[in-house]
Amino acid sequence: MNHFILILIGFLVATPIANATETDSVTVPNTMAERVKACTICHGDEDRAGRDAYYPRIAGKPQGYLFNQLLNFRDGRRYYQPMAILLENMSDEYLLEIAHYFSSLKLPYPPPEHINLQPEEIKLAEQLVFSGDPERELPACSACHGDNLMGVEPFIPGLLGLSRVYIAAQLGSWRNGGVMRGQTPDCMSEIAKQLASDETNAITKWLAVQPASGNPNPVTALAPELAHRCHSIVQENGAAK
C-alpha cells in the first residue's frame, strides 16, 4: 500500500514536469495552412519578388486554374524546377485539396503599381483588352478573363493584382513556345505570338496599374467559340478531373 502511494505521488510530481517539457516542444496544428508552409514561404499573402524569380499570389485564384497549374508543374507540362521537385510525389487528390485551400483564401489585393503610361498606350491597351483585333482574330482579354478581368471560374485566372514583371514574363513565355509545352490548342501562345512588342508592353503596363476588385465571373460568362478555342484549358482538364 505504501508502495502504491509512493508511486501515486511519483506520478503526481512527474506529470507537471512532463507537461512542462511538452510545452517546449513543437506543436503542429492539423490544418492546411500548416501543411502548405512549403508553398507559402514563397507565395505569401502578397506577391513576392525573390532573388531569382517572382512568386505570384495564388490566394483567391480559381480552384480549377490552380489545380491545373499544380498538375502541369508536377507532370512537366509547365516547367519550373523548384515546383516540379516539390510536387513530384503528390497525388491528384491532395493537389486538389491544396488548390481548394488557396482558392478559398480571401486576402486583400496589393495596390496597383505606379507606372507612367502615354495616352496612346492607354488607348492601344484598352482597345486590345476590351475589343481585341477582329482582323487578326485576336480576342479581347475580357472575352475569356471576364468583364472585370478578375477571371472566370473555375479555370481562367484573373489579370489584375499582378505585377508588370510577372505579366511580361508570362506573355514572353507564351510567345516563346508556350508556358505549357506541347499542349494543343495552345490559345494563349497563339495570341501572344501575334502581339507586337509595343502592344505587349502597353497591355502589360495597363494591367499592372488597374486596381483589383471583385470576384471571378461564373463560367457562363464565357463565349462558346472562345471556350471551344481554348478547350484544352476550359473543358478537357476540367472534365477529366
Partner: peptide, 13 residues
C-alpha cells in the same frame, strides 16, 4: 500518409 506536411525550399531565401 495521404496529406503530408512539407519542407519549404530555402534556395530562394
Amino acid at each position: 500518409n495521404p496529406r503530408p506536411y512539407g519542407m519549404p525550399p530555402f534556395q530562394q531565401i
